[in-house]
């Protein structure tokens, strides 16, 4: 027999709760699962939100809220999609979040997959594609891959900027400057810090790459990984990028993540990261910074892309709703 007192108790408490507040009522052990369905139906009927039923407790939020409502448009999962074109790299940075190096297997997405991803991204309402690796310029068909993407959507291509010569420079020159931005990694004003993590001589060659890309008419963003020793030179670093002609909105400074081969840095979990849908040859991941972390694997199936985006959004929505519920349960003051 279903214990309807639980529903009446829920109605009393919700009626007296402020909009957005959480209400928790204990369930009666003998009345599940019929009672769970009735509570869910009651929430639907009354415009309240069933947050969860577990451990013999039903938690309901007064009114409805969109857990993703507080996000900026560009933070909505699926607003842009990251694509790991490959995982091999000409560098072996000691903090690489995806363990790339010259010895890393390529694990590339082929042009057919990229074409399908780009088409499905447009269908799914994605606003931007971001290509990364590994080092994408190691791929002989990188110009074709970029063209597929820029024909579909505005695209950003991440590179270490060190390979702009010969046929690779020719590949760069074939790319659509109106639809493509280059994001080049440069960690410091002087070679020492950058080279310490990325390899001797890499700073000089990256800087040369930045200058080539600018000279070729591309919009260039600079991405720097912030080390503790960087902090005091941050203002100097921004000044340096200004002198290179990099617009201030294109200075991207991010902390070191404890991912891949990095032995320290901030710990990132699925629960602590706003997701950015990331496609690799191995599957869809929660975020590009964790694209080799099994804990961050969303699905092995990269198609259909819309399903993966929907799955990420759904999981993220649940997480944020639960986080809000937890915040209600454990006030600190």
């Amino acid at each position: 027999m279903v214990n309807y007192h639980v529903v009446l108790d829920l109605a009393r408490r919700v009626n007296n709760a402020p909009h957005g507040a959480m209400v928790t009522v204990p369930l009666d052990a003998g009345s599940e699962p019929g009672l769970q369905r009735i509570i869910a139906d009651w929430c639907d009927h009354t415009g309240n939100e069933l947050v969860r039923i577990e451990d013999m407790l039903a938690t309901v939020r007064r009114g409805r809220s969109d857990p993703l409502g507080g996000l900026a448009a560009g933070q909505l999962p699926g607003s842009r999609v990251w694509i790991y074109t490959n995982f091999d790299c000409n560098l072996a940075c000691d903090y690489c979040c995806v363990r790339s190096s010259p010895q890393t297997p390529r694990r590339a997405l082929d042009s057919g997959q990229i074409r399908q991803l780009a088409a499905e991204a447009v269908e799914a309402g994605v606003g931007e594609l971001v290509l990364t690796g590994g080092e994408p310029f190691l791929l002989p068909d990188i110009a074709e891959l970029v063209e597929i993407c820029t024909d579909a959507l505005p695209t950003t291509l991440l590179t270490n900027g060190m390979l702009f010569k010969g046929r690779r420079l020719e590949s760069l020159r074939r790319m659509n400057r109106d639809r493509l931005a280059l994001q080049i990694s440069l960690d410091s004003v002087t070679p020492d810090l950058h080279d310490r993590h990325r390899g001797r001589g890499s700073w000089d060659r990256a800087l040369a790459g930045v200058r080539i890309a600018i000279a070729e008419g591309f919009r260039v963003r600079i991405a720097a990984t912030l080390m503790p020793e960087h902090v005091e030179t941050l203002a100097q670093f921004h000044d340096f990028l200004d002198t290179l002609g990099i617009a201030s909105e294109d200075h991207l400074i991010r902390p070191l993540a404890h991912q891949g081969v990095a032995d320290h840095g901030i710990v990132l979990t699925v629960e602590s990261l706003i997701p950015e849908v990331t496609v690799t040859a191995d599957g869809i991941y929660w975020h590009p910074v964790s694209a080799v972390d099994d804990d961050h694997l969303v699905t092995r199936d990269i198609f259909p892309l819309a399903s993966a985006i929907s799955q990420v959004r759904s999981t993220f929505r649940q997480q944020r709703a639960h986080a809000a519920a937890a915040a209600q349960w454990f006030p600190c003051a």
């Binding site: 279903v2 529903v7 009735i38 009651w42 009927h45």
Partner: peptide, 12 residues
């Protein structure tokens, strides 16, 4: 209406 009339809690 708020408790769903007869529909939401059948038999109640």
């Amino acid at each position: 209406n708020g408790i769903g009339r007869e529909e939401l809690m059948p038999g109640a």
